[in-house]
Design a protein around this nucleic acid. Sequence first.
DNA 1: AAAGCAAGCTTAATCCTTTAAGCTTGTGAA
DNA 2: TTCACAAGCTTAAAGGATTAAGCTTGCTTT
Lengths: 342, 342
Amino acid sequence: MKKMSIKEVASALQISTATVSYILNGKAKEKRISPELTKKVTAFIEENNFRPNHLAKSLRTGKTNVIGLIVEDIADPFFASVAGHIENVAYENGYKIIYSSTKNDPKKAKELIDTFRDRNVDGYIITPTEGIDKEIKHLIDSKLPVVLFDRNCNDLDVSYVGMNNFESAYQAAKYLISQEYKNIAFVTLDSVQPQMIDRLLGYERAIYENRLTSYVKKVEYRAAKEHLIMAEIENMLKTEPHIDALFFATNYLAITGIELLNRMGVKIGEELGMMVFDDNDLFRIHQPSISAIAQPIQEMSQQLINDLLEHMQDTNEYANRITVLPAHLIIRDSSSKMRKNA
Amino acid sequence: MKKMSIKEVASALQISTATVSYILNGKAKEKRISPELTKKVTAFIEENNFRPNHLAKSLRTGKTNVIGLIVEDIADPFFASVAGHIENVAYENGYKIIYSSTKNDPKKAKELIDTFRDRNVDGYIITPTEGIDKEIKHLIDSKLPVVLFDRNCNDLDVSYVGMNNFESAYQAAKYLISQEYKNIAFVTLDSVQPQMIDRLLGYERAIYENRLTSYVKKVEYRAAKEHLIMAEIENMLKTEPHIDALFFATNYLAITGIELLNRMGVKIGEELGMMVFDDNDLFRIHQPSISAIAQPIQEMSQQLINDLLEHMQDTNEYANRITVLPAHLIIRDSSSKMRKNA
DNA sequence: AAAGCAAGCTTAATCCTTTAAGCTTGTGAA
DNA sequence: TTCACAAGCTTAAAGGATTAAGCTTGCTTT
C-alpha cells in the first residue's frame, strides 16, 4: 500500500493536479474553484486519508517548516526545559524542531550549522560557542532567521534573548553584603563565555562598591572532574579561612560544592552563607534551603520562539531584537543572618 | 548568491549531472568514471563549496536520514538525558533527530506519529502512551523501523528497550525488609502505565513473601498539584502511624514527599526509611542521603539507538528485539538501620 | 573485416508539489 | 454580431537530485 499522490487524487476525480493543490492549500476561492468541486475533493481526500508529500512541497517552496535548535547540551536540564517550552509554541504553529548539542565545541557547532543549512531549516535558535561568529554572520547575510540565546555574539547584528547576568549577580552579591557577609568568594568556571564574565563582573562591582575584598576561584572549564573541583574549593577555604560566604556561578559547581561542605562538616547557612546561579529542586529542598538566582526560563523561551516566528514571517523587513530579561532572585535560608558566629 | 545545483556543477565542467551524482555518492569506480574526471569534479565541488540539496535527494530516494523521537516530555531530565545519548550516536551515523513530547496525551501522540510519517522520518523511537497500539501497528505494518522504550505495548511484536521495573522494585523492597522495616508504604501514581504497575507489583511481591502488610497510596495522575500530593501523603502517615518506611515510585513524588517530611519535621532515615525510583542529584546530596533505584540510562540509550540503526539498515529481515536491562540499586543512608526507634 | 566487449560517459524518466500562464465557455454590453 | 470579461479549470515548467538504460569509442578476437 504505497502512499497516494496528488496525481492519483486528481486522476481518480478526473481533474488536474493543480486544482487539487489549490484546494489543499486553501486557495480554492482565490483560484475560483467552485464550492461543489472543492467539497468533492476534500471529501475524497478525507475518505482516502490522503496526505501530501512534505518533501516535494518543501523542494518546491523552499520551506521545510523545521526549526533548528542548537544548544550546548540537550541533556542539561536548563536546555531541555527551553526545548520543551519552544516545542509547545512551535508545534502549535506547524513547525517541527530538530535539535543538536555543540558540547561547546566550535568545530562541532560549525558542522551543525552547515548540516542544518543543508537540511533547509527555516530558522535557527542557537547558543553560540566561541569563534562561531563568522558562521552566524553567513546565516544572517543569507537572510536566514536566527535568534541567539544564553550567550550573545557582541559584534553581530542579530536577535538575542538572554538574562541580565551582570545585574542579577550584582543584586545577589549586594544582598549577601546586606546580610553582613564580609568575605564573599565567587566560584566560577575558567571560561570566556560572555555570560560567565558578566556574572563575575556583577559580583565584583558589588564587592568594590562596598570596599570589600574579592575572592575569585576559577575552576578549570569542563575538564574538571568533581573531585578536582572539590579539591580546589577546599583548598581555597583553608587558605582563606575568613571567607564567610560562597557565591557559585553555576548550579553544577554548587552541587559539587555542597557535597564537599557536607563532607567537611561545614554547616551551610550557619557557618557559611551561600548563593547560586541557576535554581534547582535541590536548593529548595536542601536543609537549610539555598538561595538562588533563577533563570527566567519560561519567559526566555517564549521570547525566543516568538522572535523567531516573527522573523520567519517576514524575512526581509524584520528588525533584530535584543531582549535581556531579569532573573528571579530567590532568597532562602542559606543567605540570611541566621549565622551563629556572625 | 543562490545555492548551486548539481546541474550547474555539471554544466560548468561540461559533463552530465549523472556523472556528478555518481561521484558524489561514491559510485565513481562502480560506474567506471575515470579517476582524472573524479578528481576534477571533487576539486570543483570543494572549491565552490557545493552541497547537494537534501530535499531533492530525499524526495528521490525516500530516505530523509531523520529519526523521530517521541517522548513523554523532553523537558524531563530522564528523557532529556536519553535524547542526549541518542544524539551522539545518531549524528555519528549521519542521522538527525526531530523530537516531540506527548505529555502523555494519546491524541497528541497520534498526531505526532502522523506528522512524523508525513515528514518521512526513517525511524521512530517512541515512549508509547495508552491507546496508541493501533498507530504503532500501522507503522510496523508499513515496515517502518520502530523501537519503543520506557513502556512496552505488550500485544505488539515490536522492538523494545526498558528496565526491569518489577525485579528492581522487588529487590529494593526486599532490601528495606532486610533492614528491619516492617511497615513499608508504596507511594505511586494512579496510572495504568505498565512500568508503574510493574513497580507496584515488585513491591507487593516482596511484601507478601514476607507476610507483611502492604500500604499503597496512589495519588492522582498528573492532575495532582504538589500540595495535594503532600496532603495525601500526610494523611496516610497520620492514619497509619506505624508506617516506618516510604518507597516512592517516581522521583517527582519523592521530591514532593521529602519537602513534606521536612516541613513536618520528620527525620528521614532516623524516623522513616526511604527508597526512590529514579535517581537524582538531590538524593545523593540530601542529608541523610537517600537510597534510589537508578535507571540504566546510558545502557538503555545505547541499546535503543543501536537497535534502531540496525533495523534501518535492513528493513526487511530485521528481527525485533526485546531488551530489559537491570537497574542499579544504590543504597544510601535513608534505608539503613541507623533508625533510633527501631 | 566483422563481431564482441569494456571503458567512460550521457539521456531522460522519476520522485511529488506548486504556480504562472493559458484555455474554454457563457453572459452582457456595444 | 462581435468583443470583453468573468468563471472555472487545465497545462506544463520548475524545484534538484537519482539511476536504469543507452550510446560512443577503441581495442581484442576470430
